[in-house]
Design a protein around this nucleic acid. Structure first.
Length: 334
DNA sequence: AATACTTTCAACCGCTCATTC
DNA sequence: CGAATGAGCGGTTGAAAGTAT
């Protein structure tokens, strides 16, 4: 039996996403929620692979994403976590909820690695490494690997402890500032601003000029004109009003500037608990990458209990454990 | 102003693990 | 239980933007 293939490569569009495609995707997810990516291209008419849709959502459109310059604190976190976890960008990103793994990976490769290299270059007389920390990992001795393993366990304990403590208290009890749960309008707003900015740029140019600037926008335009999209040709799939030409125009007309405040797409209740999919008002965004409070209220398994108990007893101060890992010196990096 | 070179980052590719049938 | 497929991850690519000559 099995399932049909993810997506046939024929007719699948590649390359940069257009604002129109973004809107279609966001509209769809607003109504149906993230997940079931396989169904997204067929239900929206997007000529994109499901994988591409997921990537676009998680790396760019998802609420709570912060773009632009990394703060010094974020840099430090990345350096520390990279030293601890290696190139496990998803794991690192889980400690920086407003950043995507792709973002962190790019930032590491383009900025931090060079910075470290420079630093180590200045320092190389005293050390034999003289390479980036990632490449130097191959030189890890057995003891270093053991230490790293221990660190991973420590991190797991810590994360579990924090996740479990969430349902007892609010986020103010969170020991790691950057790990605040993505909640409510503020995080959402940053993403909406991203899209708003993107779309405002797009609006500055007419759709025609936008078409010219995009190599494959013809296909997008045709998808917009596809009557199967929007206006609910498939009743069970709901409607994507912004995806219709009329809806699209009115959606971005002067009076309907795409802002966090008035966008119908991005209305999000600022409750600490994220509502479930398909609530009365349609799907409201939830932070995908963070476990919901309900999720953390599952009964403890033996392992979780062990981790949790141990974490409580352990001196879990981040600085202490960073210092214990001999990484304190990397703080001087800045 | 034109060209070459470098940097940045969004997106793709291929792999692994999880899930479904 | 095994095969097929989905989802997610890390590495890599290439177009666009920026900078130097």
């Amino acid at each position: 039996m099995g399932r049909p293939p993810c997506c046939d490569k024929i007719g699948v569009k590649k390359g940069p996403w257009t604002p129109e495609e973004d809107i279609i995707l966001v509209s769809y997810i607003q109504q149906h929620g993230p997940g079931n990516w396989r169904a997204v291209p067929s239900n929206t008419g997007l000529l994109r692979c499901s994988k591409s849709c997921r990537l676009r959502w998680t790396n760019y459109l998802r609420p709570g994403i912060k773009r632009g310059n990394f703060t010094e604190h974020e840099e430090k976190m990345i350096v520390h976590l990279q030293a601890l976890l290696g190139n496990r960008w998803a794991a690192i990103a889980s400690y920086l909820p407003q950043r995507t793994d792709n973002d962190i990976k790019n930032y590491w490769n383009t900025h931090l690695r060079k910075k470290l290299k420079k630093l180590q270059g200045n320092d190389e007389n005293s050390t034999q490494e003289g390479e980036s920390s990632s490449s130097s990992q191959s030189n890890f001795s057995k003891g270093q690997w053991e230490r790293r393993l221990q660190t991973d366990i420590h991190m797991a304990r810590k994360a579990l402890c924090e996740a479990l403590s969430l349902d007892k208290s609010d986020s103010s009890a969170n020991p790691i500032p950057a790990q605040q749960p993505v909640t409510g309008s503020s995080s959402y707003a940053s993403s909406a601003e991203n899209i708003s900015r993107l779309l405002q740029n797009w609006m500055k140019n007419s759709p025609k000029s936008s078409e010219l600037s995009r190599s494959n926008s013809e296909t997008t335009q045709s998808s917009l004109n596809n009557p199967s999209i929007g206006s609910g040709s498939s009743p069970s799939e709901g409607t994507i009003s912004a995806a219709t030409p009329e809806g699209f125009d009115s959606f971005f007309s002067e009076g309907n500037a795409f802002t966090p405040e008035n966008s119908a797409i991005f209305q999000v209740e600022s409750k600490p608990n994220f509502p479930n999919m398909n609530s009365e008002n349609g799907y409201l965004f939830q932070a995908e990458s963070k476990p919901s409070l309900e999720d953390s209220q599952v009964p403890f398994t033996l392992l979780e209990k062990w981790l949790f108990d141990d974490a409580i007893n352990a001196p879990a101060q981040e600085d202490q454990f960073i210092m214990a890992m001999g990484l304190g010196e990397s703080a001087d990096f800045f």
